[in-house]
């Protein structure tokens, strides 16, 4: 595969990602890479934030936050399975909160919606995949967590 091809492939995937979520996600640039969520870390107090913030609320400084890729593995803190879906979403789908090692507990769609395969505290890993459809039926992508491969 040429560099050009992988570049345009990444571009195609980036176009599918919900524009509101694009600043939060760094897509895998090559098959050996994994997608990452981008948060901020405060150089002064060390706290992590997701999504990125401009002002550190602890330090009240604007120039202390730097973009950092977050761990793409976490633990499932809690979840639920949506059966009555909002417009654009296909039921059933699962969503939950995932604990990242950076001390973040974040909302995320889940790639698995079989109740038997979801367990509190299970290991989960980040992917980028379809989360809903737009009005014309085109898929819209975003980040998700799936049960980690054993």
């Amino acid at each position: 595969m040429t560099a050009d091809n992988s570049g345009s492939k990444a571009k195609v995937q980036e176009d599918l990602v919900d524009p509101k979520l694009r600043p939060l996600i760094r897509l895998a640039g090559s098959p050996s890479e994994k997608p990452r969520l981008i948060g901020s870390k405060c150089k002064s107090c060390g706290e992590y934030f997701f999504p990125k913030r401009v002002l550190c609320p602890n330090c009240l400084k604007e120039d202390v936050l730097e973009d950092v890729p977050l761990s793409n593995e976490g633990k499932l803190y809690t979840y639920c399975i949506v059966k009555a879906a909002p417009l654009g979403f296909d039921a059933p789908y699962a969503v939950g909160y995932v604990d990242l090692p950076e001390g973040l507990r974040i909302f995320s769609p889940l790639a698995e919606c079989d109740k038997e395969r979801l367990k509190i505290d299970m290991d989960v890993e980040l992917i980028v995949d379809k989360i809903r459809e737009d009005k014309t039926g085109q898929p819209i992508h975003g980040y998700k967590f799936k049960p980690a491969s054993p």
Binding site: K20, Y79, C80, Y97, R132
Partner: peptide, 18 residues
């Protein structure tokens, strides 16, 4: 941002409940 990912009030309380 939560809403584009499928959040709604019952989703929050479903997570509380689990």
């Amino acid at each position: 941002l939560l809403t584009v990912m499928g959040f709604s009030p019952p989703v929050y309380f479903g997570n509380v409940l689990t």
